[in-house]
Design a protein around this nucleic acid. Structure first.
Length: 687
RNA sequence: GCUAGCGUAGCUCAGCGGUAGAGCUCCCGCCUUGUAAGCGGGUGGUCGUGGGUUCGAUUCCCACCGCUAGCUCCA
């Protein structure tokens, strides 16, 4: 006889097995009314599911309109809405085969196989949504029934559902004795779907939903398997919550770095130059240069040495490093001399032969470097090293090239040529831990200076797939231990991520939350015992014997491209003054005061500030509007009063009119703000 | 790479089987301006590229290129 323990610790004893409906009803009428499911010993269950043994339960409700819905409520609503959508799609588009329809963080999707002659597009959404609304209006109960495995498989076979049959088989292989279905309404009459559940009591409990997009997905996530169509939607208990979500998406669109960058002339990507290849316009170049300066200053202060290395290297170099064999797929194709190509072509060498001969090392050439480490290794190795020299820290803003899939490219976030704020530290085993610590400190400094204070850390470890990794397992163990130890000293949460290591070693990645809560992977620190081995690096120890150094790779920004892309979105283009391409614009209220405006500009420029004058024949209102649109931190309005008094009328971005300020005062304030790299003080509302 | 959508002036977009449109930008005038767009005029397009259907294609069809979303991938 089940004893039910409620979240407040109280008990209710029942003589017979009970359901959530009974429990909720016993607690109160209002609870029953808003109940949509039940947590039983930590698992989400149907409200109508039978509880036979002692359990800790809590009733899942749809929650209040103005509160964030609970994860569990969203799970139930979205999972159920996926069913409703699937039914509607089957009504609208004949010849579909359902595959898999789970809830996700943002909503839900259903993977569907469509017949060849009928595809789905967003044009179909309104009619699908109409059907969904009707199903919801009918408020049909979700009714669960079970069949024994054999019986269930036979049913699916009869229905000819290849994908559902596969799902069922996998469930059975995982130990299920029965297969479960959920009917939206009456089993046998209404629509139904093989499904583990749980679900809402009825369709009417879906308060608000929206179909979002169509995408392709592979069956089992396998690119060689069937291609399915994935239809995305989202659902909430209350319409206002859906609106909040849509507003959030709108906010993300407004912050899109590609849109802002176009308005502010930060960078271009020109298809005649190449996909994923960034052209930095002067304004964007200012931001990049300021960031480079900022980090360079810290590097020099913390014992790094700056180096330069070329953008290409010989194939053999990358065979030695392992890049070419391990990551050939994501490199630009090799550069081979045209004379040589002609010669092998005259021999009758086919493309396949050529590619094979390149792979096995019979043909040499160059590649655009996918990473900077081999070059830095050669710089380290250019002179004999003693233990007294270590650690050697070599840093470079090194531009690397990677052949990203075309569908992956995205503004500055994912590109084919990018510049890492890279460095490689060569040290003794004893120094590894301190060096990792130093790197972590640097990343923290960078993030806090830029106002990216909310972040977590992922430690990428190797998994069982040995073919992905190079090097001695024992060395891997050491490196992984060092990373975990260092991560645990950070005052932020960290997670272990098996399978996320680089091919040469484990890594510590920083995942940063931006102003609207999205996560981005930025800085990385990686420990590497493998490349020193591959390149036979040595230093002479105190014992006068050669030893193998350990390498630490690190890039606090990750890449300047991606980092700046994220900063654009984080600041919504409202860069702190030290980064702003144009820091000050002087607006003369009429032609008569252009001379004074120019004099003000000269004073500011002499302080190293980036300043222009707007002396166009426009009203000051128009000049302000334009200046605000261009997100310039300070607009100085100058007219007769200012010229006489030696003042400027300051208008600060996001703040407004600050009134007349003595020019000297303004200069000392702004130069302090810039040199301290102060963050914007106000949440900007400009557009 | 895959699926869907999209590609028209520098930008944002409308249009559509029958001579290519708007707003902003830009240029030229007028106004001489004090805190978020004064007024008038003008320049500007091989309608992504190449084929096809058609008397006629920016519009319909095919291929390619590029962009967007998602999938897969990301040293």
């Amino acid at each position: 006889m089940p004893r039910i323990t409620l979240p407040d610790g109280s008990h209710r004893d029942y003589d017979t097995p009970v359901t959530g409906v009974v429990i909720a009803g016993d607690i109160g009428e209002r609870l029953l009314k808003s109940a949509i499911g039940i947590m039983v010993d930590g698992d989400i269950k149907d409200l109508s599911g039978v509880i036979t043994s002692d359990s800790e339960v809590s009733i899942i409700t749809e929650g209040r309109k103005k509160e964030e819905p609970s994860e569990e409520a969203l799970y139930l609503i979205r999972h159920s809405c996926a069913h409703v959508m699937a039914e509607a799609i089957e009504r609208v588009i004949p010849g579909t085969q359902l595959v898999y329809g789970p809830p996700t963080d943002q909503g839900f999707y259903y993977d569907i196989h469509f017949s060849d002659d009928r595809i789905i597009s967003t044009d179909d959404f309104s009619s699908i949504e109409d059907h969904m609304k009707q199903i919801i209006a009918e408020d049909r109960p979700f009714q669960r029934y079970e069949l024994a495995a054999d019986e269930g498989l036979a049913k699916l076979r009869e229905e000819g559902s290849k994908y559902k049959l596969d799902n069922a088989q996998r469930a059975i292989d995982a130990g299920s004795e029965n297969l479960t279905w959920y009917a939206t309404g009456e089993p046998g009459c209404d629509w139904e779907d093989l499904c583990r559940g749980p679900h809402l009591p009825s369709t009417g409990r879906i308060g608000a939903f929206r179909l979002m997009s169509v995408a392709s997905a592979y069956w089992h996530g396998d690119a060689t398997s069937d291609s399915l169509t994935r239809v995305y939607g989202t659902a909430f208990p209350h319409p206002a919550q859906l609106q909040t979500q849509l507003d959030r998406l709108e906010e993300a669109r407004r912050r899109d770095h590609r849109v802002i960058a176009k308005k502010l002339n930060l960078f271009r990507i020109d298809e005649t130059v190449g996909q994923g290849l960034v052209l930095w316009q002067p304004n964007g170049a200012v931001i990049r240069r300021e960031l480079e300066e900022f980090i360079r200053m810290h590097l020099v202060a913390t014992g790094y040495q700056m180096v330069y290395s070329p953008h290409v290297g010989k194939l053999d170099l990358y065979r030695t490093s392992g890049h070419f064999p391990y990551y050939q797929e994501s490199q630009f194709p090799p550069l081979i001399s045209s004379d040589f190509l002609k010669a092998v072509s005259d021999e009758g060498c086919s493309c396949a032969d050529l590619s094979h001969r390149i792979d096995v090392g019979e043909i040499d050439g160059f590649i655009l470097k996918p990473m900077n480490c081999p070059h830095h290794i050669k710089i380290f190795d250019a002179e004999p090293r003693s233990y007294r020299d270590l650690p050697v820290r070599l840093a470079e803003f090194g531009t690397v090239y990677r052949w990203e899939q075309s569908g992956e490219l995205n503004g500055l976030i994912r590109v084919r040529g990018f510049t890492q704020d890279d460095a490689h530290i060569f040290c003794t085993e004893d120094q590894v831990y301190d060096e990792i610590q130093g790197c972590l400190e640097l990343v923290k400094l960078v993030l806090s200076t830029l106002g990216l204070d909310d972040y977590r850390v992922r430690v990428g470890l190797r998994d069982d797939d040995n073919s992905k990794y190079a090097g001695d397992p024992q060395l891997w163990d050491q490196a992984e231990a060092a990373c975990l130890k260092a991560a645990s000293t950070l005052a932020v949460p960290f997670s272990k991520e098996p399978g996320e290591a680089a091919f040469y070693g484990p890594k510590i990645d920083f995942v940063v939350k931006d102003a609207i809560g999205r996560e981005w992977q930025l800085g990385t620190v990686q420990v590497d015992y493998n490349l020193p081995e591959r390149f036979d690096l040595k230093y002479t120890g105190a014992d006068n014997i050669d030893h193998r150094p350990v390498m630490v790779h690190r890039a606090p920004f990750g890449s300047l491209e991606r980092f700046i892309g994220i900063l654009i979105e984080h600041y919504e283009g409202n860069f702190p003054t030290w980064l702003a391409p144009e820091q000050v614009r002087v607006l003369s209220i009429s032609e008569k005061f252009v001379d004074y405006a120019c004099a003000v500009k000269e004073r500011l420029a002499a302080e190293g500030l980036r300043v222009t004058v707007d002396n166009s024949d426009e009203r000051v209102n128009a000049k302000i509007k334009v200046g605000a649109q261009q997100k310039i931190p300070y607009l100085l309005i100058v007219g007769g009063r200012d010229a006489e008094a030696g003042t400027v009328s300051v208008r600060q971005r996001g703040v407004g009119d600050l009134g007349a300020v003595d020019l000297d005062r303004f200069i000392s304030d702004i130069t302090a703000e810039v040199s301290e790299r102060r963050l914007p003080t106000v949440n900007e509302e400009d557009n």
